[in-house]
């Protein structure tokens, strides 16, 4: 190009202006080893995605345990899932999906520099997170009171067993004859508790024949509750961490720290929150909705 062209001159001036500017008013959010906020944002985001990948692999260990036990003992899962309250599970699914919507909306508000909308969305997300934990607390409390715990702590109360027997009838999806057929199919793996086991209370066994109408209790039902508490517990810990992170975002948004030029934390914590939702999307049918 012609070196004397006015366009080139203008470019040179423009660059000079931009450069001097860069020197004097450095963006406080831009680290020196990045060329631009755009590059920094992309790098931050990739880092977050790599962290999320480790989260998925972390949870996958538990999904593996689930798959192995379910493949070997389908009868335990078919029997034990009736103890879980599927209505509360479904409500919690909707609560978490709604919180994902409000979080995605919070990112939108941050991108558009709408501080009021950002705060409202973050508060709604936070309320949903507390709501989820509240419902989870009710479920855990019921399990605790009904003696539906892991390992040697599995001592179901008579009420709990009666609930299962009743639930099996009340629920039109759970046809008892079909369940029996299914149970019979599992043949050798399906050891009905004939010989009393030392680890389990005699009371539960005395009750067992009465509730035989629902479904006979297979052995080692406590395995299901071990898996249930590990999976939902680890997920619950992630919700707690999410509550902490979203509260931090809320404080910063009240300080007016997020604009359309800088909203990286909102975006990245949003991604984390969606991953927590994603794990629950799989947990809900695997634990509550076993056919």
């Amino acid at each position: 190009m012609n070196p004397t062209s006015p366009q080139t001159e203008a470019t040179a001036v423009g660059l000079a202006v931009a450069d001097s500017h860069h020197g004097h008013h450095h963006d406080p959010h831009l680290a020196h080893h990045f060329d631009s906020t755009e590059q920094q944002f992309e790098a931050d985001k990739l880092g977050m995605w790599i962290f999320l990948v480790t989260e998925i692999l972390f949870f996958s260990g538990l999904f593996c345990a689930y798959a192995v036990y379910r493949a070997n003992h389908p009868e335990i899962f078919e029997y034990a899932h009736i103890f879980l309250n599927r209505t509360l599970g479904a409500v919690n699914t909707v609560v978490l999906l709604f919180s994902s919507l409000t979080m995605a909306w919070a990112v939108r508000c941050a991108q558009l520099s709408q501080p009021r909308g950002l705060k409202v969305c973050l508060i709604l997300t936070l309320l949903c997170a507390f709501g989820f934990l509240g419902i989870k607390y009710v479920e855990y409390k019921n399990k605790w009171e009904e003696g539906l715990l892991w390992g040697a702590r599995f001592h179901p109360t008579e009420e709990a067993l009666a609930h299962v027997a009743g639930g099996a009838h009340a629920d039109p999806g759970d046809h008892s004859p079909a369940r029996h057929k299914d149970a019979a199919k599992h043949g050798e793996a399906h050891k009905i508790a004939e010989a009393p086991k030392a680890a389990e209370p005699a009371a539960a066994h005395a009750e067992a024949p009465k509730h035989g109408a629902g479904m006979p209790q297979p052995e080692h039902v406590s395995i299901f509750f071990g898996i249930y508490f590990c999976m939902t517990g680890l997920h619950g810990i992630h919700i707690l961490v999410g509550i902490g992170l979203i509260s931090w975002l809320l404080v910063r948004s009240y300080r007016g720290e997020f604009t359309d030029g800088y909203y990286t934390p909102v975006d990245l914590i949003g991604l984390y929150w969606h991953i927590v939702d994603l794990v629950w999307i799989y947990l809900f049918p695997l634990l509550y909705l076993i056919h």
Binding site: H25, D27, L30, S36, T37, E38, V107, R108, D260, G261
Partner: peptide
């Protein structure tokens, strides 16, 4: 905004 590269961001950020 004290915001370097602000004008670039609008080009590639997708707002839902």
């Amino acid at each position: 905004h004290g915001d370097h590269g602000h004008d670039h961001d609008h080009g590639h950020v997708h707002i839902m």
